[in-house]
């Protein structure tokens, strides 16, 4: 399987097929030449007072700014500040993560007492965010199919002091039945187009030939998640790609196979409705209730989020 890194000079040609769906396309292309801002999430399970982290990082030469409308998120300057080498990181007071990555868990709205499956969980930025949101009182099953990545997840759960998660190593498509999950997050493996930008050229490894069929994997994961969640429960499907074949088309597949509905959500970052037509194919009208986030509008990674309710 030949994979190739997309050079910045090749980006306009690569993304050209999205000209019609990405708002202000030229601005988007320009934006890719800028580096990603640095953000972190504060972990109040470990950190007794916000001030300790803010003062600590400032003493080490960082400037820290709260992100408006996103409690517990902070932007750090300079953007190459080595957050991962700080005491605050080591003690689990912070989790560096990009802003838009917080959106799927906002859609999930975890509550204490719920059984929640995080089907593709490693390295755990969202698992730990779920734990925090439910004040360490939801019952979280954090699953990933790769042992090496699960090891990183286990380390992050320990670092953040999470006691509400157990970890498993299943292929999501065959995750066993039996737990009455209230909510499931499918943060699916994807082509990662939304991460692509200056300094992150390696994030987009596109296949020259014989590529893995990501949409087929994503459909398998989403259908299984739907079948695992209890009737009336919620599945959030998210990716960090712009590609409709990995987003709307995957959810469209589910909506045709099962009795499901998409729930609209409020988000603190600019977004656009899911698309209902792509290259001549028409999707289920519910898909306008899904949300698309673009790098140049969010100063972050491009994301797709659909909150799906199981009706029967």
């Amino acid at each position: 399987m030949g994979t190739k890194m997309l050079e910045l000079s090749e980006a306009p040609a690569y993304f050209e097929r999205y000209r019609k769906i990405i708002p202000r396309f030229e601005e988007f292309l320009e934006h890719l030449k800028r580096p990603l801002p640095l953000y972190f999430r504060l972990n109040e399970l470990k950190c007794p007072q916000e001030e300790i982290v803010l003062k600590g990082l400032e003493r080490q030469g960082a400037k820290v700014f709260p992100v408006p409308n996103l409690p517990r998120f902070f932007r750090v300057e300079p953007r190459d500040f080595p957050l991962g080498n700080t005491e605050e990181y080591y003690l689990g007071y912070i989790y560096p993560m990009t802003l838009s990555s917080a959106l799927p868990v906002m859609a999930l709205e975890p509550q204490p007492g719920e059984y929640i499956l995080d089907m593709c969980a490693a390295p755990g930025s969202k698992t730990t965010q779920i734990a925090q949101a439910a004040n360490d009182q939801a019952v979280i099953v954090a699953n990933d199919r790769r042992l090496d990545r699960l090891t990183a997840l286990v380390a992050n759960l320990k670092r953040l002091g999470v006691a509400s998660a157990l970890t498993t190593l299943y292929r999501g498509e065959v995750f066993p039945f039996g737990v009455p999950f209230d909510k499931i997050l499918v943060d699916a493996p994807c082509s990662g187009e939304g991460r692509y930008r200056q300094g992150y050229e390696g994030e987009l490894l596109y296949q020259k030939e014989g590529h893995t069929n990501l949409p087929a994997i994503q459909k398998g994961l989403l259908v299984r998640a739907f079948d695992l969640v209890k009737v009336g429960g919620i599945v959030v499907y998210s990716t960090c790609t712009i590609n409709p074949e990995e987003n709307e088309m995957v959810v469209d597949y589910l909506l045709r196979k099962r009795q499901a509905q998409i729930i609209s959500c409020q988000y603190p970052l600019p977004h656009h409705p899911g698309i209902t037509e792509w290259e001549g194919r028409v999707f289920h009208p519910e898909l306008i209730k899904a949300a698309r986030f673009y790098p140049h509008e969010t100063e972050s990674v491009g994301f797709f989020v659909a909150k799906i309710k199981r009706l029967f």
Partner: peptide, 23 residues
């Protein structure tokens, strides 16, 4: 230390790697 679930039995059918926080 592991959060008290509404019911433990269904979770016990999972093959787990780790459960909770080493206390």
């Amino acid at each position: 230390l592991f959060v008290k679930p509404p019911e433990l039995r269904p979770l016990q059918n999972l093959q787990v790697q780790t459960v909770g926080l080493l206390f």
